[in-house]
Amino acid sequence: MMGLSLALRDVSVTADNGRVLLQTGDVDIPAGQTVAVRGPSGAGKSTFLNVIAGLTMPRGGAIHWGDTAFHALSGAARTAFRGQYLSMVFQDHLLFEELGAEQNAAIAAGFSPRDQRATIRAAAKQALMTFGVHRDDLPPVARMSGGERQRVAVARALARTPDVLLADEPTANLDRQTADRLIEDLLVHTKRHNMTLIVVSHDANLIMAVDRVLGVDSGVLRDA
C-alpha cells in the first residue's frame, strides 16, 4: 500500500441558500503526508473532510485522489472508491449501538469479498488490542465511555488498512493521557503503512505531531 496523494483545484461548496461554505483554492497533499486542519467552530473543517470523502458534493472545482478524478465519479463509483481506499473517523463516533466493539470494528467484513473478511476481522481485533479496547468483559458499545467509543471508531477505520485516513476531531472527548496515546498510535500506524492522514482537530498536541497544518477560516482553506 502506498497511500494516495490529494490534489484540490479551486473546490467550492455552497449551502442551499447560496452561502459559500468552503473555498479551497489549489492544495496538494503528497501520498503518505500527515496533515492537520484547524480553525474555529463552523469555519468549514468538517465540510472540507466530507467533500474530499465524497459525502458532500462540491459546487465546482476538481478533486484528484492519486490519478482518479474523484469529483467526476458517479455516486456508486465514489462509494466503491471510498470503500477501497478511504477510511473515516467521525466526530461523534457513529457506532452501531447494538453491536459489540469487535463487530463494530470489523463492520466492513460484511461488504468485503469473502477472502478478505478474515483479514479485516483480524486487523480489527489487532487495532482494538492496540487501543486497549479488546477485553472479554467489555459492554456493548452503547454502554462504553466516550473514550472507549472513540477508540472503537478509530479501530474500525484502520481495520481495512486504508490508503487514506480521514478523521474528524479524533481526540475530542478523551482525557489527555488517552488522547496522547491515541495520537501516538495513529501516527505510528499511518507512518508504518505509509497512509495519507488528514485530520481535523483543535488538539494542540496532535497539530504539533503532524507533518503539515492547514487552516480554515470562514470557509477559506490555506496553509497555516
Binding site: 455516486g75 470503500g83 473515516m88 461488504f111
Partner: peptide, 16 residues
C-alpha cells in the same frame, strides 16, 4: 436512515 447512511459513508455499496 442514519445507520444506513453511515454504512454508505464507510464505503458499503448501495447493494449491500
Amino acid at each position: 436512515a442514519r445507520q444506513l447512511a453511515l454504512l454508505h459513508a464507510l464505503g458499503a455499496p448501495l447493494r449491500f
